[in-house]
């Protein structure tokens, strides 16, 4: 093992902040992701992660900065709208669900990219960032003083997203659980499964906005699904899966940092790859358990 990597990592505050930001991102995405996976709605997560783009750009055009509630509102709205349009197309009978998903999210993404280029002068959002994020640059962006500590803004944003995701679980866990497992029972006992689903989709859109800067649109899908999938292979109850998600977040952010430093590649991609390696390990263990 090359010890210098570790020394460099631990001595540079930047890499600590980077790890913190990516751990927060994975934690934030993992929570709504868990419910999406058990509901068999992973592809709604895929659709949302692409279609928040026009919302972000429009929010930016209205407010003029990347850190305003307009961006969050716009993103949540466009993500939620996408899922609704997909459902509507599918229910109206002539377009199947998979095709409807493919049509709507690509259209939204295309609108986002066109808007981005149309107002290239006004929107300070790098098109590259849309596809693979730019945590390495974002970490050097604006800083905010918190308790005398100079914290990069991106760490606060991703931290906020993580708090949001976990707050959702803490507050309405039971509605989420019963709404996912048995929507009919939830409806019959007045537990508003449709509103619960809307909340879940809205929170997904919000955490994806935070993940957008860290890993970009496509890889945020990985962050939604990977931790949940490895949790699902290991655990028998949802709370345990959520615990596994947190563990996955910590390990994959540290491992991702190591991979990125060692191989000299994009940090977001490295975090995802480390997460995939974790999943493979869990999978191998679960296979052995089953064969025994």
């Amino acid at each position: 093992m090359n010890w210098e990597i570790w020394q460099d990592l631990l001595q540079s505050p930047t890499s600590l902040w980077l790890m913190l930001a990516s751990a927060f991102t994975v934690m934030a995405c993992g929570v709504p992701g868990t419910f999406l996976v058990v509901r068999r709605m992973s592809l709604a997560g895929d659709a949302i992660s692409h279609s928040v783009l026009p919302g972000i750009v429009i929010g930016f055009l209205i407010s003029g900065t990347l850190d305003s509630p307009w961006i969050l509102g716009g993103a949540a709205l466009s993500g939620w709208l996408t899922v609704m349009v997909i459902g509507w197309l599918h229910r109206s009978g002539s377009v199947r669900e998979d095709a409807a998903t493919g049509i709507v999210f690509t259209a939204m993404f295309a609108i986002g990219v066109v808007l981005l280029r149309l107002y290239a002068g006004k929107v300070d959002l790098d098109p590259d960032c849309v596809l693979f994020g730019n945590l390495e640059t974002a970490i050097h962006g604006a800083r905010v003083g918190v308790f005398g500590l100079d914290v990069p803004q991106i760490v606060l944003v991703t931290g906020g997203a993580a708090v949001l995701g976990w707050a959702m679980v803490g507050l309405i866990y039971h509605r989420l659980l019963v709404g996912s497992f048995d929507p009919s029972l939830a409806a019959l006992t007045g537990q508003a499964p449709r509103r619960t689903e809307s909340i879940l989709l809205g929170v997904t859109a919000l955490v994806v906005v935070a993940a957008f800067q860290t890993v970009g649109a496509v890889m945020s899908v990985a962050l939604l699904v990977l931790p949940a999938a490895s949790g699902l292979l290991m655990c028998r109850r949802v709370p345990a899966i959520l615990g596994a998600v947190a563990g996955h977040a910590v390990i994959s952010s540290i491992g991702g940092m190591v991979i990125a430093t060692w191989a000299g590649c994009n940090l977001g991609a490295s975090v995802v790859i480390c997460g995939a390696v974790l999943l493979v390990l869990v999978w191998a263990v679960s296979l052995r358990k089953r064969n025994r």
Binding site: M219, A222, C265, S270, V272
Partner: peptide
């Protein structure tokens, strides 16, 4: 979930190689 996993992880490998 399998689809989403393959899609995003393969993409991430591609991005890592690009960078």
């Amino acid at each position: 979930a399998a689809l989403a996993l393959v899609l995003s992880v393969f993409f991430a490998v591609g991005i890592a190689m690009v960078s």
